[in-house]
């Protein structure tokens, strides 16, 4: 198992956000975390990264407990994180962004970069352009590519479709799907149509808890659950 969360509980100030979240992500798969706004999806990813430290429970990455490590230590273990707002360094060019992300700058990272530039040719095209001047879709590509070159097997991607045009969302989902051959993805997404096309496993969150989980096909076939927790038929 690539990643396993066991009954994690997270508080933001006095608010009890995650109330015993358990999930697992298999290596080489795309697992999608669905839920309405405020269900705790982003906090789950932030908890895995140590940005919202857990109070109880365990997080295991490749069998190693990482739940109480600091963010930079978790990142160094090889987990790449693409936040909801992309977290772009606006004053950095695309080139500088990759230089910053590629701390080891070894052959493996160079190979990953080359693959990312093949996958997202726009980034090669705008190599010398400041990240802040890229379009929304290009920023998202940069954020994903940056996290990928710095990771070692697991990517956490938070709502990549947010604010993007439908055509761009489709393109992006296609790219994320093609990344499956080289990495494992835990994806938080509200766009059920798109995410259900690329995800193999799903978890459904509501009020800080996992309420359903299983093969994506089961959710596709279960209109009642979709209606109840996502508000879509």
């Amino acid at each position: 198992m690539m990643l396993q969360l066991d009954q994690i509980e997270t508080y933001l100030d006095q608010f009890h956000i995650l109330q015993g979240v358990s999930l697992s992500v298999q290596a080489g798969s795309i697992t999608v975390l669905f839920g309405r706004n405020g269900a705790g999806k982003t906090t789950t990813l932030r908890s895995i990264m140590g940005l919202a430290p857990i109070r109880h429970g365990q997080i295991r990455y490749r069998g190693e407990e990482i739940g109480h490590l600091s963010t930079y230590s978790i990142a160094r273990k090889g987990i790449g994180y693409v936040p909801e707002n992309q977290g772009i360094f606006h004053d950095f060019t695309v080139e500088e962004t990759f230089r910053l992300a590629m701390q080891k700058n070894d052959d493996e990272q160079k190979e990953k970069l080359a693959w990312m530039l093949d996958l997202f040719p726009d980034l090669r095209h705008y190599w010398k352009k400041k990240s802040g001047h890229l379009s929304g879709g290009q920023k998202q590509m940069l954020a994903i590519a940056r996290a990928y070159v710095n990771s070692n097997g697991l990517l956490l991607i938070d709502e990549p479709s947010k604010g993007l045009a439908p055509i761009m969302v489709e393109k992006l989902m296609f790219h994320i799907e093609s990344m499956k051959q080289k990495t494992t993805v835990l994806l938080v997404e509200q766009n059920f149509m798109m995410a259900s096309m690329i995800g193999e496993q799903y978890y459904l969150m509501d009020e800080g808890k996992i309420v359903r989980g299983g093969a994506m096909q089961e959710l596709k076939d279960d209109a009642d659950t979709r209606q109840k927790y996502l508000g879509i038929a």
């Binding site: 990264m49 930079y72 990142a75 160094r76 936040p83 772009i88 004053d91 950095f92 910053l100």
Partner: peptide, 16 residues
């Protein structure tokens, strides 16, 4: 400079 622009992002890239 990365810390100045987005501290959490820099940390999530593995920088202490």
């Amino acid at each position: 400079k990365a810390i100045g622009q987005n501290e959490q992002r820099a940390e999530a890239l593995g920088y202490q």
